[in-house]
Amino acid sequence: MQRALIPGVLAMAAIVVASNILVQFLFGNWLTWGAFTYPLAFLVTDVMNRVYGAATARKVVFAGFVTGIICSFIGTQIMGEFGPLVTLRIALGSGLAFLTAQLMDVAIFDRLREGRWWRAPLASTLVGSTLDTAIFFTVAFSATLTFLEPGNDVSWAGEILPILGVGPEAPLWVSLAIADWMVKLALALIALVPFRAIVHRLMPDAA
C-alpha cells in the first residue's frame, strides 16, 4: 500500500507546486493560470479514492497540504512589487480551503462510491470545489476578516465593480471567486474523462 501512495503523492505535490507558481501569472481580468492546474488535485484525490480507498486518499491529501505549507512559507520569503508574494491571509486561506475541500471530497466520494461510476467523482468534486473557492477567497480577501492581518492592505480586492464586468456591483474579490469557481466546475466535468480512463487502466474490472 505504501508503494501505491507514491504516484498519488508525487502527482498531488506537482499540482500544488505548479499551482503556487502559476497563480502569480494573470489570465485575463479575473483568473490566473493557477486556476487551470489546481482543480486537478480533485482528480488525483478521486482516482486514489476509487482505486485504493478513502484512507489512502486522505494520506495523499495530507501530503498535498504539507507541500502547500512549504510553498506558502517559501512565498512569504520572496518579496514582490507590493510585498511578500504570499501573505498570512493567503497562506491561511489556501491551507484551510485545500484541507477542508479535499477531505470533504474524500468523504462524499466514499459515501457515493457504490453508485454509477461518474456520480461519486462529479458530486464530490463539485461540493469540494465550491467549498474551496468560498473558503479561500473569503479568508484571503474579505474586508470582514481584516483583523486576521491588519498590516496587509487588501483594499484593492474590495473595490466595488460589476460582477465579471457585466453583473450587479460587488467587491472585486467576488468576481475573482466566481470566475475561479466556474473554471473548477468546467474542469470537474472534463476530468471525468481522464478519471474513467485512469481507473479503468488501474482496475480493468471496475464498473
Results as ranks from 00 to 15, higher is better:
R3P: 04
L5V: 05
A11F: 14
A14H: 04
V16C: 05
A18H: 03
N20R: 06
L22K: 07
L22I: 03
F27Y: 09
L31I: 05
T32L: 00
T32G: 11
A35I: 00
A35Q: 04
A41E: 08
F42P: 04
R50W: 13
V51R: 12
G53Y: 06
T56K: 00
K59E: 09
K59N: 14
F62L: 15
G64L: 09
T67R: 01
I70M: 15
F73S: 05
T76P: 07
Q77K: 15
Q77V: 07
I78V: 15
I78L: 09
F82M: 01
L85G: 02
A91T: 06
L92I: 13
G95F: 12
A97K: 00
A101S: 15
A101G: 05
Q102V: 06
A107R: 04
I108Q: 00
F109G: 02
F109P: 01
D110N: 12
R111Q: 07
R111S: 00
L112P: 00
R116D: 02
W117H: 10
A120I: 07
L122H: 07
A123Y: 00
A123R: 00
G128W: 01
T130M: 08
F137I: 09
F141V: 11
S142R: 04
S142V: 03
L145S: 14
F147I: 14
E149Y: 10
E149R: 05
S155G: 10
E159W: 13
I160C: 02
I160S: 11
I163L: 15
L164H: 14
L164M: 14
G167H: 09
L172N: 10
L172K: 15
W173C: 05
W173M: 03
S175K: 03
L176W: 10
A177P: 04
I178W: 08
M182N: 04
K184M: 06
A186D: 03
L189V: 14
I190G: 05
R196N: 11
I198L: 13
V199Q: 07
H200F: 01
H200E: 12
M203R: 13
P204Y: 06
D205N: 13
A206Q: 11
A206G: 03
